[in-house]
């Protein structure tokens, strides 16, 4: 189908964009890369009265590295992330996950900020931010605020970002000593995951400082503190994983046309086992 009609605005500055969002009180929808929003509009699941194209906002672009973190502008496309010279050394988890995020032509348009703002439960980027302990920088009419990824994803397509706020950037702490794991189960390469996991550990023998974020399992990307605690201090071998797996029951697994909730719960365990096995190999 085709998208229903709307007003189209392309503000030239961040301040102007936020003023438009404030003025339209929830009727305006920011357009980033459009790789999720456009399908939703074509399906008529989304029907914003005003579409606010963020493509002219230079404030939302660019990747900046300091001694302690990497700041990625919200309108940075997946393609630009993949092409960034330091991606493999500074953000190895994202480097490993990127080829799994949709397809080449989608990655050429899709943005990190767009994915986080939409917060699709099956998308990789929210889980990556959780695993990496990222901070999300928001700007609204009352200025800037910084929200840890742990507090950002609040439910089904629901985030801490208010209707009159925009994601400006994400800040990811550098962790040169950390180890990372990633695995997702899909029907076709690049499709939304039936279950997936992203892992950060500060050390492997024994496992410690674990941040384990699941996606494609419930209403949002999420960590399971009891699972992290159960694996912490273990070798991550088969017995340790078997002992920790019951902690996954804390997740309210969701079923859909493709996969039942029960199968999804099983897949989450499979993804975890495979990701850990790869990390420890």
């Amino acid at each position: 189908m085709k998208a229903p009609d709307f007003d189209y605005l392309r503000p030239g500055t961040l301040a102007e964009a936020i003023a438009i969002l404030s003025e339209h009180e929830g009727e305006a929808q920011p357009l980033a890369g459009g790789q999720s929003l456009m399908p939703m509009m074509n399906f008529r699941v989304a029907a914003p009265a005003v579409l606010v194209d963020l493509s002219a906002l230079s404030e939302l672009r660019g990747i900046t590295r300091t001694d302690t973190s990497v700041r990625i502008g919200a309108m940075t496309r997946y393609r630009e992330l993949a092409d960034w010279a330091n991606i493999c050394t500074d953000l190895p988890l994202i480097a490993v996950a990127l080829p799994h995020i949709a397809h080449d032509a989608i990655r050429n348009r899709g943005t990190i900020g767009g994915s986080l703002a939409l917060a699709d439960a099956a998308a990789e980027m929210p889980a990556l931010m959780l695993a990496l302990g990222a901070t999300i920088e928001l700007m609204g009419p009352n200025g800037t605020r910084h929200v840890p990824a742990d507090d950002f994803f609040q439910g089904f397509y629901d985030t801490a970002c208010e209707a009159d706020e925009l994601i400006v950037a994400v800040d990811i702490p550098l962790a040169p000593e950390a180890k990372f794991g990633f695995h997702e189960l899909v029907q076709r390469h690049g499709d939304y995951a039936m279950a997936g996991v992203a892992i950060k550990a500060t050390s492997l023998a024994p496992l410690s400082g674990l941040r384990i974020a699941f996606f494609g399992v419930s209403d949002r990307a999420l960590r399971v503190p009891a699972l992290e605690a159960a694996l912490d201090g273990t070798s991550g071998d088969e017995a340790a994983i078997a002992a920790a797996l019951p902690a996954l029951e804390a997740i309210e697994f969701e079923g859909d046309l493709k996969v039942s909730a029960k199968t999804r719960a099983h897949y989450a365990g499979v993804a975890l086992k495979r990701a850990l096995a790869e990390m420890l190999a």
């Binding site: 189209y8 392309r10 357009l31 459009g34 790789q35 456009m38 399908p39 074509n42 194209d53 493509s55 393609r79 080449d104 032509a105 989608i106 050429n108 348009r109």
Partner: peptide
């Protein structure tokens, strides 16, 4: 699939105004 500014993109996920 078409090319926009040398990148392949989905022609259905981009508006003509973009």
């Amino acid at each position: 699939t078409i090319e926009v500014n040398s990148d392949t993109v989905r022609g259905c996920l981009m508006l003509a105004v973009q």
